[in-house]
């Protein structure tokens, strides 16, 4: 039983490494013509191993960051922290994070529109949404006020 677990772990690790190797190959292949050099197979293997190791150390960093923030979910902020020591890298990562967030928002709004369409028309649902949001904010405002009043 234990032997099976170990061999399963080993084969999973080998498969992950193979996958990393493949992706590193793809990335380097694309850059080869731009840089005007070729990559030897041994170089790719070494770089794949290095990348795998780096990803593992990134994982433990992310774990520590999330734990320090008393969270059990790795957030985008944690990844940004990993790049904090290198200003240009931090800038790059922050820009990508903004892009990703915009992408996610777009996908969400598209999905929402799709979900709403069968029920009623777009214009109607939009006009429905606006007042409810206003009501919600008014309600929270009211609770804040009442809290303040109570405190006073």
């Amino acid at each position: 039983m234990d032997d099976d677990d170990v061999s399963y772990d080993e084969s999973l690790k080998a498969r992950i490494k193979a996958s990393v190797h493949y992706t590193v190959g793809k990335i380097c292949q694309r850059e080869e013509s731009e840089m005007g050099v070729k990559c030897s197979k041994q170089f790719l293997a070494a770089l794949a191993e290095l990348t795998y190791g780096k990803c593992g150390s990134l994982a433990s960093d992310l774990e520590s960051f999330a734990k320090h923030a008393k969270r059990s979910t790795i957030q985008v902020e944690d990844v940004k922290l990993c790049a904090r020591k290198n200003p240009s890298l931090a800038k790059l990562v922050a820009e990508k994070a903004t892009d990703l967030e915009a992408e996610t928002q777009e996908r969400l709004s598209k999905k929402r529109r799709k979900d709403n369409k069968p029920a009623d028309e777009d214009g109607e649902s939009a006009s429905d949404a606006a007042p409810s949001a206003a009501v919600a904010s008014a309600a929270t405002g009211a609770t804040h006020k009442s809290k303040k009043v109570r405190q006073a």
Binding site: K13, V20, C55, A59, E63, V76, V79, K80
Partner: peptide, 21 residues
């Protein structure tokens, strides 16, 4: 790779953070 490194400790990842990684 993350899961392997964490070795069974319960942690979740936001989808944006894996893509950013």
């Amino acid at each position: 790779i993350f899961e392997q490194s964490w070795g069974g400790r319960k942690l979740r990842t936001a989808s944006d953070s894996t893509r950013l990684t």
